[in-house]
Amino acid sequence: MSGDRKVQDWKEQVRKSGPLREVNPDKGVDGWSSPVGDVFSVRGADYFSKRQKIPSGEWMMKPLGMDWLRSSARLDHVLARPDNRAMATLRRAQGEGRALKAFVFAVNLQVPGREQQHSAVFYYATEDPIPPGSLLYRFVHGDDAFRNSRFKLLNRIVKGPWIVRATVGNHAACLMGKALTCRYHKGDNYLEIDVDIGSSALASAIVHLALGYVTSVSVDIAFMVESQSDEELPERLLGAIRIHQIEMSSALYVDPSPINNADKTLGGGGFEWRKRGRGLRGHGSGKVEDEEHLPTY
């Protein structure tokens, strides 16, 4: 097996697992897909002199997929949890001497609720080294003040009722660190950004309105580091994803406390995420036969 194929294997495992499946980008429902990059516009090489924007083109990182989660408390720093499926899969690959240069970028949109908290977690990965001194390198290794001034979300409503388009906005862009509380978690091979929607009453109201129509809404979401000088142009997207008319009931329940002992958790009636169509399976024996059957989401 070639090195490229081996690298691809762990990514494919992540893409094909999880509470939401990858679907057809044109007609899929209750899942996610990869939109074409050119649906977004970014700042071109002459933006500060001519105010010209260009099609966004190829992203820096490919999507690994998304998790739609619910819990009794806010889920913070999900990549550090031993039950996180993306990092668990990467750790297994690295234990076999594969994917040693992989870097994971994740955005965790935290949606507050009266009884349950929800998280939409988007995963991206690259095997290419981040060039030292580049804007992305400065963002990954910089301080929170720098990150807050640069982290931007773009959205495009693909399908949805007029009230969602009017309230959320179409082709909208927002510097997330300026509008909301963002918490940054950096590991040796990852960066996670937790975006607290509840830190803004207006944002919380808008998101909850949108969730009321969630089964009829498809939206493209992209993340980027904003360029603020000629030397940083043209802009490139970190990554993008299309969310297709998801069901609230598709959210996978996650214990808010990280799982520190897999055997104990399985023995106590923990969960295991199986391939879509097989659902969740309870465990009572406490027996773990191999690493792939650890309780991961």
Rank of each mutant, 00 (worst) to 15 (best):
C182G: 05
R183D: 13
Y184H: 13
H185Y: 15
H185F: 14
K186G: 00
D188C: 12
N189D: 12
N189W: 10
L191Y: 06
D194F: 05
D196R: 07
I197C: 05
A201M: 13
A201S: 14
L202T: 15
S204W: 03
I206W: 08
V207R: 00
L211E: 05
L211V: 08
G212E: 03
G212I: 04
G212M: 08
Y213E: 05
V214F: 02
T215G: 12
S216K: 14
S218V: 03
I221Y: 02
A222M: 08
A222D: 03
F223M: 00
M224N: 03
S227M: 07
Q228D: 14
D230N: 15
E231H: 08
E232C: 13
E235V: 06
E235C: 06
R236M: 02
R236H: 10
L237R: 09
L238Y: 10
L238R: 00
I241M: 04
R242I: 03
I243C: 09
Q245S: 14
E247C: 11
M248R: 14
S249Q: 13
S250W: 06
Y253P: 04
P256R: 00
P256G: 06
P256I: 01
P258T: 11
I259M: 01
I259N: 01
N260W: 10
A262P: 01
D263C: 07
D263E: 13
T265H: 05
G268K: 15
G269T: 09
G270W: 04
F271I: 06
R276N: 12
R276T: 13
R278P: 01
L280C: 09
H283C: 15
G284N: 09
S285G: 15
S285Y: 11
G286V: 01
G286I: 02
K287G: 11
V288I: 15
V288S: 12
D290W: 04
D290P: 01
E291A: 14
E292C: 00
E292L: 06
E292S: 13
H293D: 13
